[in-house]
Amino acid sequence: MAHQTMSAVAVQSRIDVECEKYTKRIDSGELTLSHAHTVLTNSDAYNMDLFKIAGLAKAFACFQCSAD
């Protein structure tokens, strides 16, 4: 049986911190959406933890997706 070690609020807070970092990098042109996609599909090669992966995915979605 797995035991929850972190609250959903704490997890979301850490994801949001990473998302903000990636959003700034994408917005400034330092990170392209194409490269962000490559990083997400090869996260092991980039040595990313779950919070970085989720933050990048959230930032990517903010640029790629519409609210509809």
Rank of each mutant, 00 (worst) to 15 (best):
I53G: 11
A8R: 08
D27G: 00
Y22H: 00
T41R: 05
A59D: 08
Q4I: 15
H3T: 13
A45G: 05
R25C: 03
G55Y: 09
A2M: 00
V11Q: 05
E20Q: 14
H37V: 07
S13E: 06
L56A: 13
I53E: 15
F63I: 09
Y46P: 08
N47G: 06
D44P: 03
A2D: 05
S28L: 06
G55M: 12
Y46R: 07
K24H: 05
L33M: 07
L50R: 12
K52Y: 06
A36R: 06
R25L: 06
A8W: 10
L56R: 11
A45P: 00
I15Y: 03
A61T: 11
K52S: 14
K52G: 05
T5V: 11
S43M: 05
L50N: 06
E30W: 02
L56T: 12
H3K: 11
V17H: 09
D16C: 01
D44E: 09
V39A: 06
A10M: 08
I15F: 06
G29S: 03
M6V: 15
R14P: 00
A67Q: 15
C65A: 15
T23Y: 07
K58R: 13
S28M: 04
L50M: 05
A10Q: 13
L31R: 02
G55N: 10
E20G: 00
N47F: 13
H37D: 14
T32S: 07
E30F: 01
F51N: 00
A45K: 02
Q12S: 02
R25K: 06
S13Y: 01
F63G: 08
C19F: 11
Q4A: 14
L50G: 07
V9I: 13
H35W: 03
L50K: 10
V11I: 05
A8S: 15
N47C: 12
C65W: 14
E18S: 12
A59V: 08
M6H: 09
G55D: 10
N47H: 13
L31H: 02
S66W: 13
M1I: 05
F63R: 07
R25D: 01
T5A: 12
V17C: 07
S43V: 01
D49T: 12
S66E: 14
L33Q: 06
A45W: 03
L40W: 07
I26L: 02
T41L: 04
A54Q: 09
N42G: 01
M1N: 01
E20F: 10
K24D: 08
Q4G: 13
A59C: 11
N47A: 12
R14W: 03
A54S: 12
V17M: 08
F63N: 08
A57F: 14
F60H: 15
Y46Q: 06
E30H: 04
A10F: 04
Q4L: 14
T41P: 04
S13C: 03
I26N: 07
A36P: 10
Q64I: 11
Q4K: 15
H37I: 10
T32F: 01
V9G: 00
H35F: 06
G29Y: 04
I53P: 06
L40C: 02
K58H: 08
C19N: 12
F51G: 02
C19R: 13
K52W: 03
G55E: 10
Y22D: 02
F51P: 04
